[in-house]
């Protein structure tokens, strides 16, 4: 258990592909941080690496939903990779399975 709930975001840009490696929690406190931190200018493929994300709450889901909408509007795509089994079950629960990369 972490002493306080934070989110770290590591961004890597290359040829219009933005990879965001997240670590920490996505909760009502940290989700707005993520929303602000990412600049979608010139990005046509957005990839979230959720390897170090312990829990996904509804606020986190909302952020992904927001980015999904943004990317759709731009004609780009969004992908979630390294989703833990439990988190995947949350995505499945709310019908977000189509943005989770199963590969």
């Amino acid at each position: 258990m972490k002493p306080e709930i934070t989110i770290n975001i590591e961004q890597t840009r290359q040829n219009g592909i933005l990879v965001c490696a997240l670590s920490g929690w996505l909760d009502p406190n940290t989700s707005p941080e993520l929303e602000k931190a990412i600049d979608l200018e010139g990005v046509n493929e957005l990839i979230f690496d959720l390897k170090d994300v312990e829990y996904i709450f509804s606020s986190g889901l909302r952020v992904f939903l927001y980015f999904e909408k943004m990317m759709k509007a731009k004609g780009g795509i969004i992908k979630l990779v390294n989703v833990s089994d439990f988190n995947k079950s949350i995505f499945d629960l709310v019908g977000f399975q189509n943005i989770v990369d199963n590969a």
Partner: peptide, 9 residues
């Protein structure tokens, strides 16, 4: 997804 309201989840 894009048609859903945010909230209630």
């Amino acid at each position: 997804l894009e048609e859903r309201p945010i909230g209630g989840l």
